[in-house]
């Protein structure tokens, strides 16, 4: 390992340790903000592992997140399974779903894929509701556990760490290299012998896996699963905006997008409760016109200029 990498690893370890003791400092209001932020950190970072290098905007986060929440709800409520077995099963199911969807759509280029993923959450919500209605039945999707907010926060922190390590490994691997080439020019990638479809499918499966895992972990926080809440399209958009705001070409990019966004969102919710949608739109405009590479891009531009 190079010294710079060792240094980064050290910084990462310190940040994780600081994050881990946060619930001991405050276990009320600020922890509830931190838990929401941690959920988005994990979701946005795993989202940008796929969408960053390939430049394919996937609006499918809610679809996989919903699978996680829904399976935990059904399993615990109707089949008396434990939370843990459902939290293991849900990401596997989502990975399989992502495989099928990836095979069917990732051969398509750009815009068709985006449009397809936009409808995906709605489609899966209807599909699981239909299956439940006709074959399984329901006694209400209750997820009653003894987890406190701090437990959920720590689990989400754990997932975030795994996502970062996974991303770090991908970036160093042949797969990560292949994805960068695909993102720059898919034709070239195909000509040099990269199996473009499979490379994309594998990364897409990983975002499905993590989103469902996070959905499963968050389910006990919600305590009762309403399908249209866990499959909410707003979640998909928020993940995209936070990741782009931070910048997707660095692993830590989404992290620096999520934190200011969450705090700004909170401030606006308190002072101007009717303007959050406006804020969402403004963030999009700022990303497009001012911050095409996110905060990380801006930061790098300044450091480059300073170095000159």
């Amino acid at each position: 390992m190079k010294p710079a990498e060792l240094r980064n690893l050290g910084i990462g370890a310190v940040l994780v340790a600081l994050a881990a003791i946060f619930p001991l400092v405050n276990d009320g209001y600020w922890l509830s903000i931190a838990t929401t932020a941690m959920m988005y950190i994990a979701l946005s970072t795993s989202w940008s592992l796929f969408s960053g290098p390939t430049h394919l905007i996937a609006l499918s986060t809610a679809a996989f997140f919903g699978i996680g929440g829904y399976l935990v709800g059904t399993g615990m409520s109707d089949y008396d399974t434990s939370f843990w077995s459902m939290a293991i099963l849900a990401p596997l199911v989502a990975t399989a779903v992502a495989l099928l969807i990836g095979l069917a759509t990732l051969r398509l280029s750009g815009v068709y894929f985006v449009i397809f993923t936009l409808g995906l959450a709605e489609m899966i919500r209807n599909l699981v509701s239909w299956v439940q209605n006709n074959f399984l039945g329901s006694r209400g999707l209750y997820v009653l556990t003894d987890f406190t907010e701090a437990h959920i926060y720590w689990m989400l922190l754990g997932v975030s760490v795994v996502v970062f390590l996974f991303g770090w490994w991908i970036n160093r691997s042949r797969l990560g290299f292949a994805l960068k080439i695909i993102g720059n020019d898919e034709e070239v990638a195909r000509h040099v012998g990269i199996n473009t479809a499979w490379s994309k499918v594998i990364l897409f499966m990983s975002t499905g896996f993590f989103a469902a895992l996070i959905g499963a972990i968050v389910a006990p926080r919600y305590s009762y699963i309403e399908p249209n809440v866990v499959f909410s399209p707003q979640l998909s958009f928020l993940v995209v905006i936070m990741a782009l705001l931070g910048g997707t070409h660095r692993l830590w990019g989404p992290l620096v997008g999520v934190i200011p966004f969450t705090l700004a969102w909170e401030a606006i919710s308190v002072s101007f409760p009717n303007s959050t949608t406006l804020f969402l739109g403004l963030s999009f405009l700022i990303i497009v016109y001012v911050l095409p590479d996110g905060f990380t891009g801006l930061l790098e531009k300044f450091t480059r200029r300073a170095a000159k």
Partner: peptide
């Protein structure tokens, strides 16, 4: 407070009422 019919917003807002 408005929670936008979103449970994680709801949880935050209830915490805000209770502690802030």
């Amino acid at each position: 407070y408005d929670d936008k019919t979103d449970p994680s917003e709801h949880i935050k807002a209830v915490q805000r009422l209770a502690t802030q």
